[in-house]
Simulated assay, not measured.
Amino acid sequence: MEWKGIFPAFTTKFTSADELDLPLFGKNLKVQLDAGIDGIILGGSLGEASVLSNTEKEKLTRFTVEQVAGKVPVVMNIAEGATRDAVQLAKDASKWGAKGLMLLPPMRYKSDERETVAYFKAVASSTDLPIMIYNNPVDYKIEVTLEIFDQLQEFANIQAVKESTRDVSNVTRMINRFGDRYKILCGVDTLAMEELVLGAVGWVGGLVCAFPAETVAVYRLVKAGKIEEALKIYRWFLPLLELDLHAKLVQYIKLAEQQAGLGSELVRAPRLALVGEERERILKVINTSIANRPALPEYLSL
Rank of each mutant, 00 (worst) to 15 (best):
V222A: 05
T190E: 13
R220D: 06
R220A: 01
D189R: 03
G187N: 05
F211S: 01
P212C: 11
V222E: 07
I184Q: 02
V201N: 02
R220T: 04
A192F: 08
G187Y: 00
G187A: 09
G206F: 06
V197Y: 12
V218M: 08
G199A: 10
C186H: 03
V218E: 08
G206A: 15
L207D: 00
V216H: 06
M193C: 09
L221W: 06
E214A: 12
D189M: 05
V201E: 12
G199Q: 09
V204M: 14
P212T: 13
A210E: 02
V201H: 00
V218A: 08
L221M: 14
A210L: 04
E195P: 02
P212F: 12
V188M: 10
L196V: 06
C209M: 14
P212E: 11
L221H: 07
L191K: 05
E194Q: 15
E195C: 15
T215D: 11
Y219P: 00
W203L: 10
V222H: 07
L185Y: 01
C209A: 14
L185K: 02
E195A: 04
A200K: 00
G199M: 10
R220M: 07
L196K: 03
L196S: 04
W203K: 07
E214Q: 14
V222F: 07
L221D: 03
A192C: 15
T190H: 09
G206C: 14
V222M: 09
A213Y: 12
G199N: 11
L198H: 14
G202D: 03
V188P: 00
F211L: 14
L207A: 13
F211M: 15
T215P: 09
L221Y: 10
G199R: 11
V204P: 01
I184D: 00
A217D: 05
M193I: 13
L196I: 06
G205A: 14
V197K: 13
V216T: 08
A192H: 04
A217I: 11
A192P: 02
G206Q: 12
L191Y: 10
D189S: 11
L196A: 05
L221I: 13
V197W: 06
C186K: 03
A192G: 08
A217R: 03
Y182T: 00
C186D: 11
V204T: 10
V208W: 09
